[in-house]
Structure formats: C-alpha cells, structure tokens
Design a protein around this nucleic acid. Structure first.
Lengths: 197, 197
DNA sequence: AGCAGTGGTTTACAAAAGTTAATTTCCGGC
DNA sequence: GCCGGAAATTAACTTTTGTAAACCACTGCT
C-alpha cells in the first residue's frame, strides 16, 4: 500500500471518521505516477482535469509571459495537493505547465471521476473540502505577502518558513515566484549578507 | 423573498438540480445583513466564521502592515462571496478587517451552522464547492497577475475587466490591492494619459 | 582533462517605485 | 454656497528594480 494512500486514509479518518476499510471506492480510482526530474506532468493546452497528492519531490507550475519569459506561479512539495486549476475550475485547456523539479511521486485522480465517486459516496466530501480549503489558504497567504511585503521581505519570509524548499530549488524560480527578476534576487541576497545578515 | 436567496436557489438548481422548494433547510439559517457605507463587518480579532453573499455594494478586506499602513487584500462586490478566511480556514481570530465601502446588503450564514446543515443534507454540497472554487479561482488570478504583470499592466488589466468597480472605489485602495503606493498609481495614470492613452 | 550548458553574480545604465511633504482637487455636511 | 477633511496629484530626492551583457562557477558528459 502506498505511503500516500495511508496518509490520505488517515486524513479522511480525522476529518470525518471514515475508516480506511471504507475508503476503497475512492482509492480504487487513484493511481500512482512517477516523474523523473524535469519531466512535464501537465502541458499547456492539456484538458485533463488532474488532481494529485505529492508523495515525494517538488513540482512547479509556470506560464509564459508576453515577452516569452517563464513566470512561476507556485511550487508544491511533499504532502501538498497540486491541481490543473484551469481545467478543474473553468473546464478550459490549461494555460500552465506543471513540471517536476526533482524525481516526483504522485497519487493522481481525475477530477471528473472524483465527482462521480462523491456523488455516490458523499462521505468523502470532507476530503474534497479539505484540499480546496488548503489550496485557498495557500493562495491567500501568497496574495497577502504581495500586498503587505516588499520583495526582500517576501524572500526573508520564504526563507524563514521554507528554508528546505528554497534550498532545493534554483533561485531563478524563487525570484519569479516572488515577482522579481533573478538579478534582483541576487542583489537582495547580497544586501542581506552585507548588512549583518 | 430576498433577491440573494432567489439567485442562490437558481444557482443551486443549476449545480445539482435541487428545487427551490427543497432548499429551506439551508436558507432558514441565513440572514440578511445591512451595512451602511464605511461600517465594519468583521473586526480584527473576531472569531465568528462568517460567510456571506453580496447582494449589493462593495466590501473591502484589509490588514495593517508593520509600519501601520493599511494593505487592501481584495475587494468584493455584487454576486460574490466574502468569507472571514482566517476563522473559516484556520479557526483563528481574524487578522483582517472587512468593511463596507458603500451601503451593502449581505446574505450571511455562519460556517459552523453551514457544516451542520451539510452533514444532514449533503445535497447542498455542490454550493459549498462552488463558492470555494470561486474564491480559489479569484485568488489564483490575482497571484497570476502579480507574477506575470508589472504594476502598470495590473492596473490596465483591472480597468479593462472591472472598470465599473474601479470607478466606485478610492484610488488608494486600488493602489494597495495592486501592491503599490497611491503616489505610484497616480504616476502610472499620468504616464498612461501622456503616452496617447 | 576539456567542453558545453545552465545558473548565478556583477556591472552599467535606464526606468520605476518608495518616501516625505507641499499643493490642489474633490465631496459631504452644514 | 461655504468650509473642512480626505483623496489625489505634484515635486524632489532616494532606493530599488528592470534590462542587457559580460563574467564566473558548477555540473555532467564524453
């Protein structure tokens, strides 16, 4: 039995008292996906409504700006959910690319199938609410950082909260997530070193 | 019968075929709230898990930065949902203030009560999913704007998409939503006028 | 060992944003 | 209509960021 299934069963039990033994209708329609570093999971234009739980590794979602540069929207890592949001929310082809930054193991489900399962087994609904609230919470925290903090403060924040993740990811993606250029991030790092940490 | 209830009943029917007549367990626990311009709906520190549908008017959510300035996180207007997200997502006292920018009419429900209703009547779940997906969608769109667009582009975007709203709201709140100062927004407006619109 | 490619830093310059304060415009209440 | 306060603009100056290009450092490959 996969690690992901165990932790999600555990979560489901905590959320609504559903026993692992009663969770088979749900996990019967999930499947494990392995990606190697740098492999693309979802391509621009893809229509699949993929939702996945990250067992191992880091994923990156990005899109192309008008000028052709990549803009990283977010990173997701172990124990987080990642979802093709254009397809799930709007039923439109994805404008984003989702790609593995490291070797990644996912537990994947198709959102259409999830909806079918939910219709028949409403006892799983708390799990859907959980992941929606989680993603909403993360998005709001990022929004909040953009309106309350300067780029340097956002970077300090990220270091304080996710040092491990920052260290596993090339700076240029961190910069783009922070809404600045790699050159600018480099200068921020320099200023932080000079001015007594 | 309130306008909001009608439109939400309509929405519920579209989402899952629930007839208005069958929606009373839900709407029995909602109540209409009227705020006058500038009145505070949720205060910093409030613990109520308020969720509301905006029938009329514009609401603003803001928090205080370290330096004491207000930072506007978002605006919400007619036909949108507004939720005390700290209390609903994390069960923590709200770090944000929610305030009416104009005279506002809301249809309010307590999230704890909503959960009770959902437990007994799972047929209403699609409505909860709808509002969560809607809020998630809006947050992601804002995040996307921050990583892909310059302040000027974000402002142009906002004008193109929500000209009516921008015109009903003082510029300083718009500026803060865009992550810049009012002085900077003023300069952007000037540049836009000079350079042939 | 040598080489190519990527990512990070540095430099020099232009453009934009922050800050503070003065000034003007706008608006609501009387 | 007048007045007072809030909002917006302007100005002067500082700081930060963007941009483009050169340079450096590291890695993986043959």
């Amino acid at each position: 039995m996969s690690v992901s299934i165990s932790s999600l069963q555990q979560l489901l039990f905590e959320l609504s008292g559903v026993l692992p033994a009663d969770s088979s209708p749900l996990f019967a329609v999930t499947r494990q996906v392995k990606l190697h570093a740098n492999e693309t999971y979802i391509r621009e234009g893809d229509k699949d409504r993929r939702l996945a739980y990250i067992e191992k590794g880091i994923m990156r979602a990005y899109t192309l700006k008008q000028n052709g540069d990549e803009a990283t929207l977010f990173l997701r890592w172990e124990k987080q959910f990642i979802a093709s949001h254009d397809t799930i929310i709007h039923r439109k082809p994805s404008r984003f690319v989702y790609r593995a930054l490291e070797d990644v193991t996912l537990l994947e489900i198709d959102y259409d199938i999830l909806e079918e399962v939910m219709k028949v087994h409403p006892r799983f609904e708390p799990l859907r609410n959980f992941f929606l609230l989680r993603m909403l919470s993360e998005s709001l925290a990022i929004m909040e950082a953009f309106v309350t903090l300067s780029p340097e403060e956002r970077y300090r924040n990220l270091l304080a909260e996710r040092f491990d993740v920052v260290n596993r990811v090339p700076d240029k993606y961190i910069a783009s997530m922070l809404g600045i250029t790699p050159v600018s991030l480099s200068r921020i790092r320099k200023r932080m070193l000079e001015k007594g940490k």
